[in-house]
């Protein structure tokens, strides 16, 4: 509650500080959808991202108050510029619930959406009016599942785990991919949200991306013969369970059964 209040107060302050300047430079967009987005931007985004989506990167952090997890010594500024991020990033961050962020300085995570579909489309249209890449159109049906698995293992599994169960890295939590839609997966690969690297066409082509998206869809419900999945890592952890859990259990059983000969 307090955090929401803080953000609201920040937003109001931001409106006062940057609102007039922003509208003078950018102004209300002509298209009605983007114009609606302009007002929504003032309501939800302006406090951190600044007027005209220009970002507030160079301000000292003590001007913003501190959220939990915020390292005052290292961090300055509030939020990046949204000019040029395009519909690609706006759609991803709003449809996953990553934005609006609850606390400043935290890793954005999947949250229940506070904006309606129409509000999201309006905001995306407004951000897109500053230019930038469009929303991609992944076609998982054109991808190859086996190629997708190989690419996922090479590029993604190091952090997201081989069937996309998520994991840990230093400084961040790679999210599980079970709720990521094909479009969101494709967007995230091109954006690189939070500390994830972005992958250009050079590293992952659009066709390869289709394969990866298809594999992620498969990994939501991988073939399972039941029982303890062990992270679907394959025969090595299964063998470890046999040797280090089942074998000691059998040994203990043998010891309990036998009787030591007195000599």
């Amino acid at each position: 509650m307090r955090a929401v209040l803080t953000v609201a107060v920040l937003a109001a302050a931001g409106l006062l500080a940057a609102g007039p300047a922003g509208s003078a430079a950018g102004g209300t967009p002509k298209k009605p959808l983007a114009a609606h987005g302009y007002h929504l931007y003032g309501e939800y985004c302006l406090g951190c991202h600044g007027g005209n989506a220009a970002g507030r990167a160079n301000e000292p952090s003590n001007a913003t108050g501190a959220g939990p997890g915020r390292d005052q010594g290292q961090q300055a500024g509030i939020a990046p510029s949204l000019q040029g991020v395009g519909a690609l990033a706006a759609d991803f961050y709003l449809r996953t619930g990553y934005m609006p962020l609850r606390h400043l300085g935290l890793q954005p995570r999947r949250e229940p959406l506070v904006l309606s579909d129409r509000q999201i489309r309006a905001l995306v249209a407004y951000i897109a009016s500053f230019g930038g890449p469009p929303i991609p159109k992944p076609k998982p049906e054109l991808g190859s599942l086996s190629q997708g698995q190989a690419l996922f293992a090479e590029h993604c599994a190091g952090c997201h785990q081989v069937v996309g169960q998520g994991g840990y890295v230093t400084g961040a939590l790679p999210p599980p991919l079970d709720r990521a839609t094909p479009l969101q997966v494709a967007e995230a690969v091109r954006i690189g949200p939070y500390v994830m690297p972005k992958f250009s066409q050079h590293a992952i082509s659009d066709r390869q991306l289709d394969s990866i998206v298809r594999y992620v869809e498969f990994a939501k419900r991988p073939d399972r013969p039941g029982g303890w999945g062990l992270g679907f890592l394959g025969p090595v952890p299964e063998g470890l369970v046999t040797w280090f859990l089942a074998m000691p259990a059998l040994l203990v059983l043998c010891l309990l059964l036998g009787r030591r000969l007195r000599s």
Binding site: A57, Q74, Q75, G77, Q107, V169, T170, G192
Partner: peptide, 24 residues
């Protein structure tokens, strides 16, 4: 080394880092 930690907005996020997937 196959992992690259690449913050989108450096002031608020952990610094860039090259990470080895074997033992981090």
């Amino acid at each position: 080394i196959t992992l690259y930690r690449a913050p989108l907005f450096q002031p608020d996020e952990p610094k860039p880092a090259l990470v080895c997937p074997c033992h981090y």
